[in-house]
Amino acid sequence: MSEWTEIVDYFRGRSMWMLHYCTGCGAIELPPTMTSRWDMERFGITPMATPRQADILLITGYLAIKTLKRVIYTYEQMQAPKWVLGFGSCTINGGIYWDSYNVIERLDKYIPVDIYIAGCMPRPEAILDAFVKLKEMVQKGEAKGYEKYVKNYDWYKANQDRVLKRTSPVLKEIEKVTKIG
């Protein structure tokens, strides 16, 4: 059975589809990563449109609390196996937003991050390096963030609730805003 798992992991590492959640300024580094200059498709990594199809969730930079809510929802809509890449110092320690009132400091308090890419902003080489690293981890069966999330769900949930309660209500009078016609 373990050989089978190894084979599966090998192929999983060779085909990773990415959902890029471009909230921060770092997103600008993704187009060169995808196109002719650096071409990430040669590692089997392709951008995808929806969380249902994706394996990697790439968070590019700072996350406001309201954004975090969407990220968590999106992450939970993805299906296992799934991995999260934190991209830029903002996801690591808040970066230049370290003292902001509405930006989270550490992403991995809310969802499990498999790999962080340091830098403000990280260059395409760094992103590719992270992809290759992730590939190796997946093939070795080490990238198990999604299992960690299930196992420690209470802890993550508590962390999430602590910040997310500041977002509600999103709008005071929902009906008024969303009414049609």
Partner: peptide
């Protein structure tokens, strides 16, 4: 799939 929006928040 709602592009990240949580349907209940928007009274969807």
């Amino acid at each position: 799939y709602t592009a990240g929006q949580i349907p209940q928040d928007w009274n969807l």
